[in-house]
Nucleic acid binder design. Sequence first.
DNA 1: TTGGTTGCAAAATGTTTGCATGACC
DNA 2: GGTCATGCAAACATTTTGCAACCAA
Lengths: 150, 150
Amino acid sequence: MKCKIHAETIERQMERNWPSGVKKTRQRTEIFQILAAAGKPLTATEIYRLINESREGKPYAFSTIYRCLQTFEAAGMLIRSIAVTDENAMYELRMEQHRHYAICLSCHERFPLRTCFLGDLRQMLPADMDGFEITGHQIEIYGYCPACAQ
Amino acid sequence: MKCKIHAETIERQMERNWPSGVKKTRQRTEIFQILAAAGKPLTATEIYRLINESREGKPYAFSTIYRCLQTFEAAGMLIRSIAVTDENAMYELRMEQHRHYAICLSCHERFPLRTCFLGDLRQMLPADMDGFEITGHQIEIYGYCPACAQ
DNA sequence: TTGGTTGCAAAATGTTTGCATGACC
DNA sequence: GGTCATGCAAACATTTTGCAACCAA
């Protein structure tokens, strides 16, 4: 929101990725914008803070945040995940090309990995799991980022 | 515990993998045995149920389970992780060769993958993340197991 | 014996839900 | 105007913590 250069691309992103079945409300729009502006996974609490600290008047309720995120997830607009090294769910707008992250154990920052190098995931399934229907996967690398490594 | 064939291997596993710094108590021993017998990640609640349903008298407290698991983790005896598709932490005894899982979105069963095919993880780090010190990684495949796929 | 561990209860946290009010289409 | 989303508060589930009693080394 601070960066006007991104403002219209977020608008466009919203137009393109907002299913017609999902009603637009002030709260939902702002949550979407926060996520789009962040460009990385956020927790519900982070979203709550980000959205309410830039507002005067009554803050949006936590239940609203959670319900919107559930709606978005059900509509396929975002992906909910939990990092190995973390406690809480994180929410990230679904991208054309999905991403994985390197996560710093110290500062908890998430650095997007270059690409998903995984070849044929089916290779990794055991022999008797031929019937397993793969719908997704996740890779995480964790350790210490350059800043924290010292 | 039901299977006597495994009984002594669990004993041996305990002897080998129990650091001398960790005091042995009845509770800790039983938690270790539950985990060893399961051979797969369990949640704190699952451990609580498994350990207490095979006991008469007062059940072990939840706080004890959690504190033991923390102790084990700090001692490097087990690994704590959270699945993308799940809410709660799971605890698994550390194996010589680490494992990854295919997780069924329907029944939540976890099927160990054959091997970790990842080559050089460093390839996946972005160029400016050269200083990132990798200490671990996680791969998960999710979808529907043969039984649930229908 | 003594410090670390357990049990209990209460607190902290993250998330969900019921219901009345209010906003979008 | 009707339906669905919101806000509030209370419920819920998981995990953590304080403190006294207890156990293993």
